[in-house]
Computed example of a mutant assay.
Amino acid sequence: MTRPDETPESPAADAAAAPEGVPFPKAIRTFVKRGGRTTTGQSKAFETLGPQFLASFTGQPIDFEKTFGRQAPTVLEIGFGMGEATAHIASGLPGTNFLCCEVHEPGVGALLKRIGEQGIGNIRILQHDAVEVIDQMIPEASLDGVHIFFPDPWHKKRHHKRRLVQPALVARLARRLKPGGYLHCATDWQPYAQQILEVLGAEPLLQNTAADYAPRPAYRPLTKFENRGLKLGHGVWDVVFTRR
């Protein structure tokens, strides 16, 4: 989850600014890197678990079998916040590999700590800009799924261009899904849910699994953040499309 710990910057306009295969200018990012205190436990997790569970950004196509030490379906997660939902999902789906992109250091440390505490072995973390990872490291038709949970909604109209789910990024992701692979987005901001539904619906490689919004899949847990919102009367919308 991207919010509240990490906010994407301008993936629609910026991600479209350079074609695939062309290095990104340093100014282009899909996030705004925020400060935050890394706890002692998180720092220890970096030291003890980082060598095993942190993957390096190489700019070269990733070998999933080598990275995870096995052949298994692979899901890409973009922005996981503090990693609560990620750890829960990975624990519940031990036969699936999860490649997770997040730049917020306390969040990465928190997920590493959860990995150690819960004995999770099917997560690898890339602490790098997701668009560069997608363009330079993820081969086409290689992913079984993509998760984007609670990205920053950028409520003000003048900031809508900064929203993560935009046509340019969705087209990139669709090409990297295997036929039958899925793209699952979730948000608690209805106007953003409507935009996500429209953007995914306009991508010719994708088809909706529901008439509009999908029921929450069993693998996605209700996080503390989401539960707080539900108690305040906020809705949550899941959008799940599959690759044709």
Rank of each mutant, 00 (worst) to 15 (best):
D63K: 09
I62Q: 04
G41S: 10
P73D: 12
G69V: 10
C100V: 15
G81W: 01
E102C: 10
T67K: 04
S43Q: 15
I78F: 03
G79M: 07
F98C: 09
F80Q: 02
M82Y: 05
P51Q: 09
A72M: 09
G50Q: 10
G107L: 08
P61R: 12
A90I: 12
M82F: 11
A87W: 03
G41N: 09
I78S: 02
N97F: 01
V75T: 15
F98W: 06
V108T: 08
F68K: 01
P51Y: 09
E102Q: 12
R70N: 03
P51L: 12
C100E: 11
Q60G: 01
F57Q: 09
L76I: 09
A90G: 08
P51A: 07
I62G: 00
T48H: 06
C101W: 01
G83M: 04
G95H: 14
I78R: 04
F57V: 08
L76Y: 06
H88K: 14
E47Y: 02
D63F: 04
A72V: 13
F53A: 00
T96N: 04
N97L: 06
E77F: 04
G107F: 06
G59C: 12
Q60N: 15
L99E: 02
T74Y: 09
R70D: 10
A55E: 10
F57A: 14
T86Q: 12
G69D: 10
F46R: 05
F53V: 04
F98L: 08
K66Q: 15
Q60A: 15
G107M: 11
T58R: 07
P51D: 10
A85R: 06
G59P: 10
F46Y: 15
T48M: 09
F64M: 07
G83I: 05
S91E: 15
G107D: 11
T96P: 00
L54S: 06
S43G: 13
I62F: 03
I62L: 15
T58I: 09
Q52D: 15
